[in-house]
Design a protein around this nucleic acid. Structure first.
Lengths: 231, 231
DNA sequence: CTACAGTATTTGGTAGGCCATAATACGATT
DNA sequence: AATCGTATTATGGCCTACCAAATACTGTAG
């Protein structure tokens, strides 16, 4: 999102986000990075106050988040932040494996150097974020790595699906990347994906991508089952 | 939608569902089976009148359908029924291939006879629906075939994703199943999936599932590109 | 200490109104 | 007649206020 507004720009202004979209982003973010914890009730009127908007807007936002799977609605009790159980998390990782594997294979089969270059750029950004202990940066750059994987072969729908699912496990992601040695192994696994793509090895690229999320899934499972009993 | 309401006296009328959900289903159905056509504007106040509910409800419904991809929102112009372009449809079929292939493989690897039995039941229901020219039945039973595939190995999330995507191409589905010889080839392809599962051949099951949606995708593409120029 | 009645909270849903913007119709001016 | 404002309308976005029903809470009477 660059602020391009120079010459020849018939496009004068930004889409002017509606209040609703602003609120949606705010609440989603609040959930995703833990300001609202799983199981917390999301009382409409409280949200109105906190966001400074009307119930109309809040209700639409809650509906939207509900269909994203971030919010669950107990009948006659109201919306709460969805709880992520371990089984669901595993399934989400599995689906990501299938789709990212597919995208990786397509990238390899296309065999365009631009793809490899773009992926390598993201990858090195990830490595440097790890060096700086910038965990938010790691997440963002990992995301852009995968975005490249999907969009370079024009798989926008699949990318949308992956994104939709990913928000639901976001807090897991931020835990997995902080685990021991993940700073080395994570990029190494992703590097394998890139290597296979460079070789034009579709099968290998797919396997490497699936291995990467499988590893993440295993870590997530360990993290989840370690913290469940404590809670 | 069965009209079961007679006996069972206690069973008064427990809507369980909120008005909102009722309205959501109604509108979704109206879109899915073509009462509202792609590109049609969905004017809030008109919908209020047609559904007999308040704007609040209508707006929530529209938001929900928007996040399902059935409705698009033009800034400053309002919601319209989403247009399905051919590229997007192909991507949806591709994703279904990946996920249904995954599910089929898992079914084969589990190797439980109940799965095979359940799938065969759906399959024969499909065949008999074809015999009766009951196209709605074909769709419903096909859906239940795949539902079995996913839920028998507890992949509810993936099934949810497939469902989400499927509504967007529903009218394509209803056209593909009506094409020449689809009454024979469709079930034959699905039968191959079942056979592979029975053999415990994960690889084969995956391939068969992917072949089946690939065939559907090819037909859909033909149908779409045939009707586009006319329009 | 329990049971129960009353009270508060909160959702689900309704009604209606206000404002901003886009499109369209309608003039008025040249 | 063609063009250039200017009402009007339609509509989305947003708000306030209200009500009914379900749920949770609380204090009191027995």
């Amino acid at each position: 999102m660059s602020g391009a507004l120079k010459d020849a720009a018939i496009r004068v202004e930004r889409p002017a986000k509606t209040l609703r979209e602003l609120a949606l982003d705010k609440v989603r973010e609040a959930i995703v990075n833990g300001y609202f914890r799983p199981g917390d009730r999301l009382v409409e009127r409280d949200l109105c106050a906190q966001l400074g908007v009307s119930r109309t807007v809040v209700r639409e936002v809650l509906r939207h988040l509900e269909s994203e799977g971030l919010v669950a609605n107990l009948p006659n009790k109201g919306p709460i932040v969805a709880q992520l159980d371990i089984e669901e998390a595993k399934q989400i990782y599995e689906i990501r494996g299938a789709l990212e594997g597919m995208a990786a294979r397509l990238c390899a089969e296309r065999g365009s150097p631009e793809i490899v270059a773009a992926l390598e750029e993201s990858l090195s950004a990830i490595r440097s974020s790890y060096r700086d202990q910038d965990m938010a940066g790691v997440l963002a750059n990992t995301s852009s790595f995968y975005q490249t994987l999907f969009t370079m072969v024009d798989r926008h729908v699949a990318w949308g699906v992956v994104n939709l699912l990913t928000v639901r496990i976001n807090h897991l992601r931020s835990m997995t990347i902080k685990t021991e040695r993940r700073d080395i192994e994570g990029p190494a696994q992703m590097s394998k994906i890139v290597d296979a793509i460079r070789r034009g090895d579709g099968e290998g690229a797919q396997r490497a991508a699936m291995d990467h999320v499988a590893a993440a899934s295993a870590i997530a499972e360990a993290v989840l089952s370690a913290q469940k009993p404590a809670e």
